[in-house]
């Protein structure tokens, strides 16, 4: 199998396909032209920047640079997870950041010790650690934002039920448990759904990339299976920690529900 490097011209031709989106937007009056332009430019600029950063880090291969980049990625994931939520409470940023760290780094650690042995990656750690971290973070942040969104939404709309339970002698955990469980379930559903259809409906991007790069399909599939389980574990850990940390913030030790600390941020 061979690997073909794309030329700038190849990439330009593909980028011109954005004109299809633009034409549809114009024809139907969708008003998306401006956003399409921004999205297209961001796609190119962000990925080119990433390319330069990765090139530099792969070249440097110093563990501090690799860890630094992964910390920055984690921080961005923690912030993005909260930015996607509609309701916030004091401490939600720290909760999200902690949840990202507690899940993605643990899962990556397991992957780079138990699954892919250090002997394999020690010569080029960045080549393994960074793509794996990126895959785990992208999905974990999705789970965290869905979980936090559902938790704060349900606790707000069903405040009377939470308080009814407390009034009847429930502990804060007994009062919140159904809502905490729903929130964690909501955060975990997308990854379960994609595990259900992977290979049937969707061809995962990483596997596609490996095959394009000349890997044996079976080898690519093995990596993809590993990735799916890493993502699932990361999402489960991240969502659960974020929702539980949120619960701790929203119920005090006197078993009071601090409904007033949840604020809506978007109309």
């Amino acid at each position: 199998m061979s690997y073909h490097d794309l030329s700038t011209l190849d990439v330009t031709v593909a980028a011109l396909l954005i004109l299809v989106n633009g034409a549809i937007s114009l024809a139907l009056g969708l008003g998306l032209e401006r956003r399409l332009l921004i999205a297209a430019v961001r796609t190119v600029v962000q990925l080119l920047l990433l390319g330069y950063v990765l090139k530099w880090i792969f070249g440097a291969s110093h563990w501090l640079a690799i860890v630094g980049l992964m910390l920055a990625m984690s921080a961005i994931a923690g912030v993005s997870a909260v930015r996607r939520t509609e309701r916030r409470y004091p401490g939600v940023w720290l909760n999200s950041m902690t949840a990202v760290m507690a899940s993605a780094w643990v899962v990556l650690g397991v992957a780079l010790t138990g699954v892919i042995s250090p002997a394999v990656w020690s010569s080029s750690p960045a080549q393994y650690a960074i793509p794996l971290m990126g895959m785990i973070l992208g999905n974990t942040l999705n789970g965290i934002s869905l979980g936090l969104d559902r938790l704060t939404e349900e606790l707000t709309s069903r405040r009377a039920e939470v308080e009814m339970r407390l009034c009847l002698g429930a502990t804060r955990w007994e009062a919140a448990k159904p809502f905490v469980a729903n929130a964690i379930r909501t955060g975990m559903v997308p990854i379960i759904n994609s595990m259900m259809v992977v290979g049937l409906v969707s061809l995962p991007g990483m596997m596609t990339g490996q095959i394009l790069a000349g890997a044996e399909p079976m080898a690519a599939v093995r990596y993809q299976i590993v990735i799916m389980f890493l993502i699932a574990a990361g999402t489960a850990l991240g969502t659960t920690s974020a929702v539980l940390l949120g619960y701790r913030r929203l119920f005090n030790r006197r078993h009071q529900f601090l409904a007033g600390s949840i604020r809506k941020v978007r109309a």
Binding site: A160, E163, M164, L166, C167, L168, G169, A170, T171, E174, R253, R254, H255, Q256
Partner: peptide, 15 residues
């Protein structure tokens, strides 16, 4: 603080 649930089982507020 730990005694609050027990207290609420003794002093029940009906909304």
């Amino acid at each position: 603080p730990e005694g609050v649930p027990h207290y609420r089982s003794q002093v029940i507020y009906v909304q």
